[in-house]
Structure formats: structure tokens, C-alpha cells
């Protein structure tokens, strides 16, 4: 039975750690801006065409779909869950498109089927996680494998090529320069996601769920419904990214997008979204996507192999969870020793 003394004690303990949230976030994003500028400067120094429309076009082309998938992933991680099946859903969508195309479908209805497939795949994740209360990491590791397997079953070893590229241009002219279509779409989507996250009651609910799920539920927020919708959204966006990816590569096979979930999670975490949920902004994720694009472009320009790049991306992922936790971890370890004493009463 918790009585007055216990509560007073806890108050004291909590007050010690108060008031850091927003400040550290702002700092994180300024850090990202500096990092981005640094990448661009390095790139320009080593490669004089770095900051030209062409280069920007191609880096945008590379990162577009990954960055798109990072947006719903941001929402999901803010609620304290994760979706590791994103790249497989992208692959499933690409395979479906390829299969339908090989079977003589018109491209537009095929795309609609792809979107439906994505929504169903996301809904399956969502039902398992919200209805059955299963841990999202385990479920989506399972469906990562399941959806990739389905992609392989649908398309077999075939590679679908010969998509009618003429129906969709890859670039969008802006003034004199051009920007990759998928990157342009990403920017538009990012604006929508940012508005939803930061200005709507839906966005507010996401933070509340991630920070204190029980309070959110006690305050009339439909926690499970919201999570379910996020997974469906994730499925839809991944399916859409799969369609774009297929166009960009002008081909689809069963390994399309294999392993991209790592890039997606890396972008989200680098963007300052807390792996514990409840913290993060879309602007941070957009900056992280730009950094990733600039960094890979620069590294490719100076002939750093893809393997070394993946080491660097992995390192960034690791750093982006280690750095914000360095202080938290320290506080937590100290609190742990305190709890060891108090905890006997629990």
C-alpha cells in the first residue's frame, strides 16, 4: 500500500530529472543541420559538381523511397513500436506489380492492386499487434520473412522489365533545375506528415501513447485503433514506394529492396526519434534523410565502396541511439542504485 511518504519520496526522485525533453531535441536538430552542412562542404571540396542539379537529382533518386518509408516508421516508433517489415512490403508490392505487368495488366489497375496488397499486409501486422497484443518486433520480424517469401512466390526467379516508362517521368522541373520525382513526393509527404504530427490531435495522441500508454488510454485515446491505422498507413506507403522503386529501376524481382528496413530505421533514429518512443520530429527525419543522401553521394564520389558506406551508416545508427542515451543511461544507472534500496518495497 502506497501512502503519503512513498509518494513524497517519488516526487522528489522525479523532480530531479525534470525539464530536459524539448531542449535536447532542439539541440539534436541543430546538430543535424551542422552535420548536413558538413557533408555538403566535404562533398563540394572533393567533387566540384557535388552541389549541382544533376548530383542532387541522383542523390534524391537514391534516397526517395527509403525516406518515404521513414515517415510512417517515425509515427510508429514515436508510439513506442517498430515495423521491421517495411522493405519486405516494398518488395511484395514491386513483385505484385511485376507479376501483373507480366500477365498483361494495364499499369494503372495493377498499381491499385499493389496499394491494396500493401494495405492488407500492414493490416495483418496491425491486427497481430493490437488485437492479439503481440510484441511488434517479433511480429514484424516474422512478417519481414513472410512478405519477402510471398514476393518470391509471386514472381519466382523472374525479373519483370519493360515497364512503360514513358507514362511517368523521373524528374520534376523546378525552375532551371530538376528534382527527382520520388524525392519531390517525399518532400510533399513529409510536409503532410509534419502537419499531422505537430498540429493535429492525432499527432498529439501519438506522443501521448509513446510517453505514457496507460494515461493515453485513460484519457480516451483509442490506443489500439491508432496503432492499427499506423501499420496500415505503413503498408500503404511501402506499397507506393515499391511502385516508385520499380519504375526507377525499370525492373522488379524478388529481392527488390532487400534489407532496406535497416536504412529506414537508421534514418528515423538519426533524425532524433527516440527508440523508447514519445520523442521526435518530422523535420529531424527529413534532415536525416538529406544527410544520408548527401553522405552516400559524397562517399560514392570519393570512391568509398558500398560496404564501407554500410559500416558508416551502421555507425550512425549506433551513435544516434548511444548519444542521447549517454546522459539518460548515466541517470538511469544512478537511479538504478537508488531503486535497489527503495525497490525492496515493490
Amino acid at each position: 500500500m502506497e501512502d503519503t511518504e512513498t509518494v513524497l519520496e517519488k516526487d522528489a526522485a522525479i523532480d530531479l530529472g525534470g525539464g530536459r525533453g524539448l531542449v535536447s531535441l532542439v539541440r539534436w536538430e541543430s546538430g543535424l543541420v551542422i552535420l548536413l552542412i558538413a557533408c555538403i562542404i566535404c562533398g563540394t571540396l572533393s567533387f566540384k559538381y557535388f552541389f549541382t542539379p544533376q548530383t542532387i537529382f541522383f542523390s534524391g533518386l537514391d534516397i526517395g523511397e527509403i525516406a518515404m518509408m521513414a515517415l510512417p516508421m517515425t509515427f510508429i516508433i514515436i508510439t513506442g513500436e517498430i515495423d521491421l517489415s517495411v522493405a519486405s512490403m516494398l518488395g511484395l508490392s514491386a513483385s505484385t506489380l511485376g507479376y501483373l505487368f507480366l500477365h498483361g495488366w494495364n499499369i494503372w489497375p495493377a498499381m491499385i492492386v499493389c496499394m491494396v496488397v500493401g494495405a492488407v499486409a500492414g493490416a495483418f501486422n496491425g491486427i497481430l499487434i493490437t488485437r492479439f497484443g503481440l510484441p511488434s518486433i517479433a511480429v514484424t520480424i516474422g512478417t519481414l520473412s513472410l512478405y519477402r517469401g510471398l514476393a518470391s512466390i509471386i514472381l519466382g526467379t523472374n525479373t519483370a522489365v519493360g515497364f512503360p516508362l514513358s507514362t511517368l517521368k523521373l524528374s520534376l522541373p523546378i525552375g532551371k533545375s530538376e528534382i527527382a520525382y520520388d524525392f519531390a513526393i517525399f518532400i510533399v509527404m513529409a510536409i503532410v506528415f509534419a502537419v499531422v504530427l505537430h498540429l493535429t490531435s492525432f499527432g498529439r495522441s501519438l506522443y501521448a501513447i509513446g510517453l505514457q500508454k496507460e494515461t493515453a488510454f485513460f484519457s480516451g485515446i483509442r490506443v489500439n485503433q491508432i496503432k492499427f491505422r499506423l501499420y496500415v498507413l505503413s503498408g500503404l506507403v511501402c506499397a507506393f514506394a515499391g511502385i516508385l522503386y520499380t519504375y526507377q529501376e525499370a525492373s522488379a524481382n524478388n529481392v527488390t529492396g532487400l534489407g532496406l528496413e535497416l536504412n529506414v530505421v537508421a534514418i528515423v533514429l538519426l533524425g532524433g526519434v527516440s527508440i523508447f518512443g514519445g520523442r521526435g520530429t518530422i523535420i529531424g527525419v527529413v534532415l536525416a534523410a538529406c544527410i544520408m543522401a548527401a553522405l552516400t553521394t559524397w562517399l560514392t564520389d570519393i570512391d568509398v565502396s558500398g560496404e564501407v558506406q554500410s559500416i558508416i551508416i551502421g555507425g550512425l545508427l549506433l551513435l544516434s541511439v548511444l548519444v542521447p542515451n549517454a546522459r539518460d543511461g548515466f541517470v538511469r544507472i544512478r537511479a538504478l542504485f537508488k531503486r535497489r534500496k527503495v525497490g525492496a518495497s515493490l
Binding site: 498540429l199 493535429t200 498529439r204 501521448a208 505514457q212 485513460f218 485515446i221
Partner: peptide, 26 residues
């Protein structure tokens, strides 16, 4: 009762989000 790491005004509004929103915007 509370989301400890959220601001005071946001905690007060948490149960009234629907009423405070117009077309979903707070």
C-alpha cells in the same frame, strides 16, 4: 493520470482533444 514528460497545457487538453480540434487540427 498524467503524461509526465508532456507540458502542463497539453496534459490539461489530453482528454478534450476532440473538442479542441477543428477538422483534426488542434
Amino acid at each position: 493520470g498524467l503524461v509526465m514528460e508532456m507540458a502542463i497545457d497539453r496534459n490539461v487538453a489530453l482528454a478534450s482533444l476532440r473538442g479542441l480540434s477543428h477538422l483534426g487540427f488542434i
